[in-house]
């Protein structure tokens, strides 16, 4: 049987998460569910980014006993996407926290989280 590549699993899972998140953002009426959809979308992107940085058969980019220092470049995966994803996770967390705070204020204003009820700007 042909072996399935690790990065294929990661990227497929990431794409499915992105599609689930997008579906939730497009169809859900409850603001909290839309925020959850955004988080899923975010997580999917992170998984794809880490998956793209994977190099076949290599180990984590931490130079301990498992890695020969002399030929480190041929034994580790790409550290750059992982660093980028760390940044992206922190930014995503900030955005999620902001959205939750807005959702809280909207709930205080109208006593509902149904996005259909917020039609002040509709004509």
């Amino acid at each position: 049987m042909e072996q399935i590549d690790l990065s294929h699993i990661a990227i497929t899972a990431g794409i499915l998460l992105i599609l689930t998140g997008l579906w939730a953002i497009l169809t859900q009426k409850n603001i909290l569910k839309m925020i959850i959809g955004f988080s899923l979308f975010d997580t999917g992107i992170h998984i794809i980014m880490v998956g793209v940085g994977y190099v076949k058969g290599k180990t984590a980019p931490i130079l301990d006993e498992a890695v020969n220092l002399e030929r480190a470049a041929r034994e580790v995966v790409d550290p750059l996407p992982q660093a980028m994803v760390l940044t992206a996770i922190v930014i995503g967390l900030g955005i999620t926290a902001l959205m939750l705070a807005y959702a809280l204020r909207l709930y205080q204003k109208k006593n509902t989280l149904d996005v259909k009820k917020f039609n002040d700007l509709k004509w």
Partner: peptide
């Protein structure tokens, strides 16, 4: 992304 194989060596920056 879906149908590309994982790379076999690091790019220049990562190296």
């Amino acid at each position: 992304f879906g149908w590309t194989d994982a790379g076999t060596e690091l790019n220049e920056v990562a190296t």
